[in-house]
Write a protein that binds this DNA or RNA. Structure first.
Ligand code: FES
Ligand code: FES
Lengths: 134, 134
DNA sequence: ATTAAATGATACTAAATTTGTATCATTATA
DNA sequence: TATAATGATACAAATTTAGTATCATTTAAT
Protein backbone atom coordinates (compact mmCIF):
# COMPACT_ATOMS: atom_id res chain seq x y z
CA UNK A 1 0.00 0.00 0.00
CA UNK A 2 1.32 3.36 -1.02
CA UNK A 3 0.57 6.24 1.23
CA UNK A 4 2.52 8.80 -0.75
CA UNK A 5 1.39 8.68 -4.36
CA UNK A 6 3.28 10.40 -7.16
CA UNK A 7 0.92 13.36 -7.11
CA UNK A 8 1.70 13.99 -3.49
CA UNK A 9 5.39 13.24 -3.82
CA UNK A 10 5.76 15.73 -6.67
CA UNK A 11 3.58 18.24 -4.89
CA UNK A 12 5.83 18.22 -1.88
CA UNK A 13 8.95 18.61 -3.96
CA UNK A 14 7.49 21.43 -5.99
CA UNK A 15 6.03 23.20 -2.98
CA UNK A 16 9.32 22.86 -1.15
CA UNK A 17 11.19 24.47 -4.00
CA UNK A 18 8.66 27.24 -4.42
CA UNK A 19 8.63 27.90 -0.70
CA UNK A 20 12.38 28.25 -0.60
CA UNK A 21 12.26 30.82 -3.41
CA UNK A 22 9.02 32.49 -2.63
CA UNK A 23 10.17 35.98 -3.55
CA UNK A 24 10.10 34.99 -7.24
CA UNK A 25 7.33 33.57 -9.30
CA UNK A 26 8.46 30.06 -10.23
CA UNK A 27 7.54 28.74 -13.65
CA UNK A 28 7.00 25.12 -14.53
CA UNK A 29 10.00 25.37 -16.81
CA UNK A 30 12.16 26.30 -13.88
CA UNK A 31 10.73 23.58 -11.67
CA UNK A 32 11.27 20.95 -14.32
CA UNK A 33 14.92 21.95 -14.54
CA UNK A 34 15.32 21.78 -10.79
CA UNK A 35 13.30 18.70 -9.99
CA UNK A 36 13.23 16.57 -13.16
CA UNK A 37 9.55 15.96 -12.70
CA UNK A 38 7.80 15.14 -16.02
CA UNK A 39 6.62 18.44 -17.36
CA UNK A 40 2.98 17.87 -18.32
CA UNK A 41 2.32 15.91 -15.17
CA UNK A 42 3.79 18.63 -13.02
CA UNK A 43 1.74 21.17 -14.90
CA UNK A 44 -1.42 19.27 -14.12
CA UNK A 45 -0.49 18.99 -10.49
CA UNK A 46 0.30 22.67 -10.09
CA UNK A 47 -2.93 23.55 -11.78
CA UNK A 48 -4.88 21.63 -9.18
CA UNK A 49 -2.80 23.05 -6.35
CA UNK A 50 -3.74 26.43 -7.76
CA UNK A 51 -7.43 25.61 -7.93
CA UNK A 52 -7.29 24.27 -4.40
CA UNK A 53 -5.84 27.52 -3.13
CA UNK A 54 -2.37 26.40 -2.09
CA UNK A 55 -0.69 28.29 -4.92
CA UNK A 56 -1.29 31.62 -6.55
CA UNK A 57 -0.75 31.52 -10.29
CA UNK A 58 0.35 34.23 -12.69
CA UNK A 59 -0.43 33.84 -16.35
CA UNK A 60 1.41 35.30 -19.30
CA UNK A 61 5.07 35.72 -20.05
CA UNK A 62 7.24 35.57 -16.95
CA UNK A 63 4.30 34.06 -15.15
CA UNK A 64 4.52 31.21 -12.71
CA UNK A 65 3.50 30.18 -9.22
CA UNK A 66 3.88 31.45 -5.69
CA UNK A 67 2.64 30.10 -2.41
CA UNK A 68 -0.74 31.39 -1.47
CA UNK A 69 -0.26 30.61 2.23
CA UNK A 70 2.61 30.50 4.63
CA UNK A 71 4.52 27.20 4.62
CA UNK A 72 3.40 27.02 8.23
CA UNK A 73 -0.18 26.78 7.09
CA UNK A 74 0.24 24.08 4.48
CA UNK A 75 0.00 20.54 5.78
CA UNK A 76 0.55 17.11 4.37
CA UNK A 77 -3.08 16.50 5.20
CA UNK A 78 -4.09 19.11 2.62
CA UNK A 79 -2.31 17.18 -0.09
CA UNK A 80 -3.90 13.94 0.97
CA UNK A 81 -7.31 15.49 0.90
CA UNK A 82 -6.69 16.96 -2.52
CA UNK A 83 -5.21 13.91 -4.21
CA UNK A 84 -6.61 10.90 -2.39
CA UNK A 85 -10.26 11.43 -3.06
CA UNK A 86 -11.38 12.33 0.40
CA UNK A 87 -9.00 9.89 1.95
CA UNK A 88 -11.44 7.25 3.11
CA UNK A 89 -9.82 4.52 5.08
CA UNK A 90 -12.93 2.77 6.08
CA UNK A 91 -15.41 1.28 3.74
CA UNK A 92 -18.10 -1.10 4.86
CA UNK A 93 -16.89 -4.50 3.86
CA UNK A 94 -19.26 -7.05 5.24
CA UNK A 95 -22.68 -8.06 4.08
CA UNK A 96 -25.38 -8.90 6.58
CA UNK A 97 -24.76 -12.64 6.46
CA UNK A 98 -21.33 -12.48 8.02
CA UNK A 99 -20.95 -9.22 9.83
CA UNK A 100 -22.07 -9.49 13.45
CA UNK A 101 -23.87 -6.16 13.63
CA UNK A 102 -24.52 -4.08 10.62
CA UNK A 103 -25.74 -0.99 12.43
CA UNK A 104 -22.64 -0.16 14.38
CA UNK A 105 -20.03 -2.50 13.02
CA UNK A 106 -17.01 -2.86 15.27
CA UNK A 107 -14.55 -3.28 12.48
CA UNK A 108 -15.75 -0.16 10.77
CA UNK A 109 -15.56 1.73 14.03
CA UNK A 110 -12.02 0.60 14.65
CA UNK A 111 -10.84 1.45 11.16
CA UNK A 112 -12.54 4.80 11.49
CA UNK A 113 -10.61 5.41 14.63
CA UNK A 114 -7.33 4.51 12.99
CA UNK A 115 -8.16 6.78 10.06
CA UNK A 116 -8.77 9.67 12.40
CA UNK A 117 -5.48 9.04 14.13
CA UNK A 118 -3.59 9.09 10.88
CA UNK A 119 -5.33 12.23 9.73
CA UNK A 120 -4.43 13.96 12.96
CA UNK A 121 -0.80 13.07 12.42
CA UNK A 122 -0.78 14.29 8.82
CA UNK A 123 -2.40 17.44 10.07
CA UNK A 124 0.70 18.04 12.15
CA UNK A 125 3.26 17.86 9.36
CA UNK A 126 3.67 21.32 7.86
CA UNK A 127 5.52 22.25 4.70
CA UNK A 128 7.72 24.44 6.86
CA UNK A 129 8.77 21.52 9.01
CA UNK A 130 9.65 19.50 5.95
CA UNK A 131 11.78 22.27 4.52
CA UNK A 132 13.53 22.94 7.77
CA UNK A 133 14.00 19.30 8.53
CA UNK A 134 12.53 19.58 11.95
CA UNK B 1 -6.50 5.22 -0.80
CA UNK B 2 -7.86 1.84 0.07
CA UNK B 3 -6.74 0.30 3.30
CA UNK B 4 -8.84 -2.82 3.00
CA UNK B 5 -8.25 -4.42 -0.38
CA UNK B 6 -10.45 -7.16 -1.76
CA UNK B 7 -7.99 -9.82 -0.70
CA UNK B 8 -8.23 -8.70 2.88
CA UNK B 9 -11.93 -8.07 2.76
CA UNK B 10 -12.61 -11.58 1.45
CA UNK B 11 -10.11 -13.06 3.87
CA UNK B 12 -11.91 -11.58 6.82
CA UNK B 13 -15.27 -12.80 5.62
CA UNK B 14 -13.99 -16.27 4.93
CA UNK B 15 -12.05 -16.50 8.17
CA UNK B 16 -15.04 -15.24 10.09
CA UNK B 17 -17.24 -17.93 8.62
CA UNK B 18 -14.69 -20.65 9.16
CA UNK B 19 -14.11 -19.53 12.72
CA UNK B 20 -17.79 -19.69 13.49
CA UNK B 21 -17.97 -23.24 12.21
CA UNK B 22 -14.58 -24.48 13.22
CA UNK B 23 -15.71 -27.97 14.16
CA UNK B 24 -16.18 -28.80 10.46
CA UNK B 25 -13.78 -28.59 7.61
CA UNK B 26 -15.17 -25.87 5.35
CA UNK B 27 -14.80 -26.30 1.61
CA UNK B 28 -14.56 -23.52 -0.92
CA UNK B 29 -17.83 -24.70 -2.37
CA UNK B 30 -19.52 -24.10 0.96
CA UNK B 31 -17.90 -20.72 1.41
CA UNK B 32 -18.92 -19.57 -2.02
CA UNK B 33 -22.53 -20.46 -1.23
CA UNK B 34 -22.37 -18.57 2.03
CA UNK B 35 -20.40 -15.52 1.02
CA UNK B 36 -20.88 -15.08 -2.74
CA UNK B 37 -17.19 -14.46 -3.16
CA UNK B 38 -15.96 -15.33 -6.70
CA UNK B 39 -14.86 -18.91 -6.54
CA UNK B 40 -11.41 -18.97 -8.15
CA UNK B 41 -10.40 -15.80 -6.40
CA UNK B 42 -11.45 -17.15 -3.05
CA UNK B 43 -9.57 -20.32 -3.79
CA UNK B 44 -6.42 -18.39 -4.47
CA UNK B 45 -6.84 -16.43 -1.28
CA UNK B 46 -7.41 -19.49 0.88
CA UNK B 47 -4.40 -21.14 -0.67
CA UNK B 48 -2.20 -18.30 0.45
CA UNK B 49 -3.81 -18.19 3.88
CA UNK B 50 -2.91 -21.87 4.06
CA UNK B 51 0.67 -21.34 3.00
CA UNK B 52 0.98 -18.51 5.50
CA UNK B 53 -0.15 -20.75 8.31
CA UNK B 54 -3.47 -19.18 9.21
CA UNK B 55 -5.46 -22.09 7.85
CA UNK B 56 -4.97 -25.81 7.86
CA UNK B 57 -6.03 -27.43 4.62
CA UNK B 58 -7.35 -30.90 3.92
CA UNK B 59 -7.11 -32.28 0.44
CA UNK B 60 -9.25 -34.89 -1.19
CA UNK B 61 -12.97 -35.51 -1.16
CA UNK B 62 -14.70 -33.87 1.79
CA UNK B 63 -11.59 -31.81 2.25
CA UNK B 64 -11.58 -28.13 3.11
CA UNK B 65 -10.14 -25.65 5.56
CA UNK B 66 -9.95 -25.13 9.28
CA UNK B 67 -8.34 -22.46 11.36
CA UNK B 68 -4.80 -23.26 12.31
CA UNK B 69 -4.81 -20.87 15.27
CA UNK B 70 -7.33 -19.58 17.72
CA UNK B 71 -9.33 -16.59 16.46
CA UNK B 72 -7.73 -14.81 19.37
CA UNK B 73 -4.35 -15.23 17.75
CA UNK B 74 -5.24 -14.02 14.29
CA UNK B 75 -4.97 -10.30 13.77
CA UNK B 76 -5.84 -7.90 11.03
CA UNK B 77 -2.16 -7.08 10.94
CA UNK B 78 -1.41 -10.62 9.75
CA UNK B 79 -3.63 -10.11 6.74
CA UNK B 80 -2.05 -6.78 5.93
CA UNK B 81 1.37 -8.27 6.08
CA UNK B 82 0.33 -11.15 3.86
CA UNK B 83 -1.50 -9.19 1.20
CA UNK B 84 0.02 -5.71 1.20
CA UNK B 85 3.55 -6.64 0.33
CA UNK B 86 5.18 -5.91 3.62
CA UNK B 87 2.98 -2.93 4.20
CA UNK B 88 5.46 -0.16 3.59
CA UNK B 89 4.05 3.23 4.29
CA UNK B 90 7.20 5.15 3.94
CA UNK B 91 9.26 5.31 0.83
CA UNK B 92 11.98 7.84 0.31
CA UNK B 93 10.52 10.45 -1.94
CA UNK B 94 12.99 13.25 -2.27
CA UNK B 95 16.15 13.46 -4.27
CA UNK B 96 19.18 15.18 -2.80
CA UNK B 97 18.48 18.48 -4.51
CA UNK B 98 15.33 19.19 -2.61
CA UNK B 99 15.30 17.13 0.54
CA UNK B 100 16.93 18.95 3.43
CA UNK B 101 18.87 16.04 4.81
CA UNK B 102 19.13 12.75 3.11
CA UNK B 103 20.66 10.81 5.96
CA UNK B 104 17.94 11.17 8.51
CA UNK B 105 15.09 12.71 6.59
CA UNK B 106 12.39 14.17 8.81
CA UNK B 107 9.54 13.37 6.54
CA UNK B 108 10.58 9.76 6.29
CA UNK B 109 10.92 9.60 10.04
CA UNK B 110 7.49 11.02 10.57
CA UNK B 111 5.85 8.72 8.08
CA UNK B 112 7.67 5.83 9.66
CA UNK B 113 6.26 6.80 12.98
CA UNK B 114 2.74 6.97 11.62
CA UNK B 115 3.22 3.59 9.99
CA UNK B 116 4.27 2.08 13.28
CA UNK B 117 1.25 3.54 14.98
CA UNK B 118 -1.10 2.08 12.42
CA UNK B 119 0.57 -1.28 12.62
CA UNK B 120 0.20 -1.30 16.38
CA UNK B 121 -3.49 -0.64 15.99
CA UNK B 122 -3.98 -3.37 13.43
CA UNK B 123 -2.11 -5.64 15.74
CA UNK B 124 -4.84 -5.12 18.30
CA UNK B 125 -7.78 -6.17 16.13
CA UNK B 126 -8.27 -9.91 16.47
CA UNK B 127 -10.50 -12.13 14.39
CA UNK B 128 -12.28 -13.01 17.61
CA UNK B 129 -13.10 -9.38 18.30
CA UNK B 130 -14.49 -8.99 14.81
CA UNK B 131 -16.70 -12.04 15.15
CA UNK B 132 -17.94 -11.08 18.57
CA UNK B 133 -18.45 -7.45 17.62
CA UNK B 134 -16.49 -6.20 20.54
C1' DA C 1 0.14 45.00 -33.25
C1' DT C 2 2.99 40.99 -32.83
C1' DT C 3 5.50 37.53 -30.80
C1' DA C 4 7.02 34.73 -27.06
C1' DA C 5 6.36 32.44 -22.90
C1' DA C 6 3.65 31.45 -19.49
C1' DT C 7 -0.94 29.16 -17.22
C1' DG C 8 -6.19 27.10 -17.68
C1' DA C 9 -8.98 23.50 -19.06
C1' DT C 10 -9.53 19.17 -20.58
C1' DA C 11 -9.26 15.00 -23.29
C1' DC C 12 -6.46 11.30 -24.22
C1' DT C 13 -2.92 7.33 -23.63
C1' DA C 14 0.24 4.22 -21.29
C1' DA C 15 1.77 1.65 -17.44
C1' DA C 16 1.03 -0.62 -13.29
C1' DT C 17 -1.76 -2.80 -9.98
C1' DT C 18 -5.68 -5.10 -8.46
C1' DT C 19 -9.08 -8.29 -9.22
C1' DG C 20 -10.57 -12.28 -11.11
C1' DT C 21 -10.23 -16.84 -14.29
C1' DA C 22 -8.64 -21.21 -15.98
C1' DT C 23 -6.19 -25.37 -15.98
C1' DC C 24 -3.67 -29.27 -14.72
C1' DA C 25 -1.70 -32.06 -11.11
C1' DT C 26 -2.32 -34.31 -6.69
C1' DT C 27 -4.81 -36.20 -2.79
C1' DA C 28 -8.41 -38.49 -0.03
C1' DT C 29 -12.83 -40.79 0.50
C1' DA C 30 -16.67 -43.67 -0.73
C1' DT D 1 -12.32 -46.18 -9.80
C1' DA D 2 -15.08 -42.06 -9.71
C1' DT D 3 -15.69 -37.90 -7.33
C1' DA D 4 -14.77 -33.91 -4.95
C1' DA D 5 -11.68 -31.53 -2.77
C1' DT D 6 -6.91 -28.56 -2.56
C1' DG D 7 -1.92 -27.06 -4.67
C1' DA D 8 0.48 -24.53 -7.95
C1' DT D 9 0.63 -21.45 -11.37
C1' DA D 10 -0.22 -19.07 -15.66
C1' DC D 11 -3.35 -16.06 -17.80
C1' DA D 12 -6.81 -12.12 -18.58
C1' DA D 13 -9.85 -8.33 -17.49
C1' DA D 14 -10.83 -4.24 -14.99
C1' DT D 15 -9.43 -0.38 -12.54
C1' DT D 16 -6.37 3.03 -10.97
C1' DT D 17 -2.30 5.65 -11.31
C1' DA D 18 0.88 8.05 -14.00
C1' DG D 19 1.88 10.63 -17.74
C1' DT D 20 0.96 13.22 -22.52
C1' DA D 21 -1.04 16.37 -25.82
C1' DT D 22 -3.56 20.19 -27.39
C1' DC D 23 -5.91 24.37 -27.79
C1' DA D 24 -7.36 28.59 -25.65
C1' DT D 25 -6.16 32.59 -22.93
C1' DT D 26 -3.19 35.87 -20.64
C1' DT D 27 0.79 38.96 -20.03
C1' DA D 28 5.09 41.43 -21.12
C1' DA D 29 8.46 43.13 -24.20
C1' DT D 30 9.57 44.81 -28.63
S1 FES E 1 -17.96 -3.90 7.94
FE1 FES E 1 -19.76 -2.88 7.39
S2 FES E 1 -21.29 -3.81 8.64
FE2 FES E 1 -19.43 -4.76 9.24
S1 FES F 1 12.19 11.72 1.80
FE1 FES F 1 13.92 10.46 1.53
S2 FES F 1 15.62 11.80 1.94
FE2 FES F 1 13.86 13.00 2.32
Amino acid sequence: MKLITRDIDYSIRALAYIAKNNSDKISVTKLVKETKIPRPFLRKILQTLGREGLLESFKGKFGGFKLNKSPNDIYLLDLFEIFQDKFDFNKCIFKKKICPNTKDCVLKEKLDHIGEMVKREFGKISLQSIIEGR
